[in-house]
């Protein structure tokens, strides 16, 4: 695979390999086939963007990686270690794969600092004192100083999302799993989020599995964009974004970006039409 060379440091961990993933919901009843025959390999330190029609099964795949539910069959490996597979249908959730949720899941009853410090304290890898110190430092790095003692409910949704990503990075995960984290944000806040995410990424080189409906976001951030088929989901087309990192917002106006946009749009549109037709059939 000829992935775009990564900026500066080269990540050595976070190699995610999904083989023949297959997921049926409610096999005895409605038997919804959400993921079928889905294979995908993501390189260490890659930003892999997942797009596809609504309800095609993207979240289902992410939940299987995170260990929130089982796969009906198929195997997922992370750095050679089997997360789930034959004999072990459900992965154990763990701090090596941290999910950032669409609606945000900072604990509203903990301050931002307590939220960021939460992981290592729970795992027992740091004393509460150490964890708070490191949390303070990593928040400062991400430009979040001054809101350590605020509650998530007291800060804007954009800043909340950043705190949540920092809370994840605090655990030094191998993979970040993001499920439309910026969906609810306005486009201006979104653009700030994108640059902030890239900045964090350039410093941490973590593998990112990022689900989105926003094609511009997908191409702007991703090394590759995986366009999923309509349900059941599997990669229909994988687009390598050959615009070098580090990127900033000026690439949005480049001709290459427009070309990639058109190419993605076409593939996505095709699937969207299929999904729509399938919806019509089902009533």
């Amino acid at each position: 695979m000829s992935a775009t060379p990564l900026h500066k440091k080269v990540a050595t961990r976070g190699h995610l390999k999904i083989q023949d993933a297959h997921k049926v919901y409610d096999p005895e009843g409605a038997a919804v086939l959400a993921v079928d025959n889905c294979s995908l390999e993501i390189q260490p330190g890659e930003i892999c963007m997942i797009v596809g029609p609504s309800g095609c099964g993207k979240t289902t795949l992410l939940n299987a990686i995170a260990g929130f539910h089982s796969l009906t069959s198929g195997t997922i490996h992370l750095d050679g270690e089997m997360l789930c597979g034959p004999g072990k249908p459900k992965a154990e959730p763990g701090a090596d794969r941290i999910v950032v949720f669409q609606n945000g899941a900072l604990f509203p009853w903990k301050t931002n600092l307590e939220n960021v410090a939460f992981g290592p304290i729970m795992q027992g890898t740091m004393s509460p004192q150490e964890a708070r110190e490191k949390a303070r430092a990593i928040m400062a790095d991400a430009g979040l100083s001054g809101m350590e003692n605020n509650y998530p409910g007291e800060i804007s949704s954009g800043v909340r999302r950043r705190v949540e990503i920092v809370r994840a990075l605090m655990n030094d995960p191998k993979v970040l799993l993001l499920d439309e984290p910026y969906r609810a944000l306005d486009s201006l806040t979104k653009s700030v989020m994108h640059e902030a995410l890239l900045e964090i990424y350039y410093r941490n080189q973590v593998t990112i599995f990022f689900i989105t409906h926003d094609l511009e976001e997908a191409i702007f951030l991703g090394h590759r964009v995986v366009i999923m088929t309509t349900r059941p989901c599997k990669p229909k087309k994988i687009l390598t974004v050959d615009i070098p990192h580090p990127r900033d917002y000026s690439v949005l106006t480049s001709p290459r970006f427009r070309e990639l946009m058109d190419e993605t749009m076409e593939a996505v549109h095709e699937e969207a039409v299929k999904a729509f037709a399938a919806g019509e059939r089902e009533g």
Partner: peptide
């Protein structure tokens, strides 16, 4: 919200925690 519980599992918390 289920996502708080999931988030806690992701961050390495055990059931009692």
């Amino acid at each position: 919200d289920e996502s708080y519980i999931r988030a806690a599992y992701c961050l390495g918390a055990k059931r009692a925690q």
